[in-house]
Amino acid sequence: MFVLFLFVALLAALFLLPGKKLKKAGINLPDQSARKRLWQIILFISLIMMMLSLRLAPFALIIFLVGLGVIGNSLWQDHMKSAEDLDEQDIPRQPSPRLSSKMTVEEAWEVLGLSPDAQTVDIDAAYRRLMGQIHPDKGGTDYLAAKINEARDLLKKELPPEA
């Protein structure tokens, strides 16, 4: 009986390996969280049964508690991932036509928060300050970063070169 539970545990552990390791072994399975959770349950049940067959009830209880934690964590991660997917679906995919049109010089001054009498140094300082706040690597969006880049480039092109 112990050998059967050991075999099932090893089989379940094999299918819990990351997808890359399975592909190297020539096994192509879709990486689905439900399939993974099923194999986790099978693994923990077989480990618990092995411990009980060896009359090691305290170890079986410990494995049961660890299994609850692992499977609960897996469920929580799936829940959070689906919540993120819902949040992303609420974001409009295309900006409004007015926002996607070519930027005017007045809009560029407004985007950078500067007045028309600002110099190239002021433009560069405002650009660095804003990009430090809204860069995509810091939680901002590509769209906002592109608008700030467009504003800086437009204003630098419009200003006469400094001597």
Rank of each mutant, 00 (worst) to 15 (best):
V3T: 15
V8R: 14
R152Q: 06
G19R: 15
D85A: 14
G140Q: 01
K156D: 02
V66K: 02
K138Q: 14
K81D: 12
M50I: 02
M49N: 07
P92E: 05
L10D: 11
D90F: 12
K20A: 15
D78S: 08
V70S: 03
F64Q: 08
R98I: 11
G69K: 05
G139W: 06
Q119M: 13
R35N: 12
M51A: 12
I27H: 08
A60G: 02
S82H: 04
R152T: 01
L29I: 10
D87I: 09
K138D: 08
M131Q: 10
I45V: 08
G113L: 10
K23T: 10
G19L: 14
E84I: 06
W39T: 03
A146H: 01
E84D: 12
G19N: 15
G72V: 06
Q77C: 06
S100Y: 01
L22N: 08
V105I: 14
A9Y: 08
G19K: 15
L16E: 01
H135K: 02
A9K: 11
A125V: 14
L61D: 03
Q94M: 12
D153F: 00
M51Q: 11
M1S: 15
F7H: 14
N73A: 05
E88R: 15
L86G: 03
L22Y: 05
G140K: 02
K23R: 13
M49P: 00
I71P: 02
F44Y: 04
D78H: 08
D87E: 11
A25D: 10
S82M: 00
D153R: 00
D31C: 01
P161T: 01
P18N: 08
E88W: 08
G67M: 01
L17V: 07
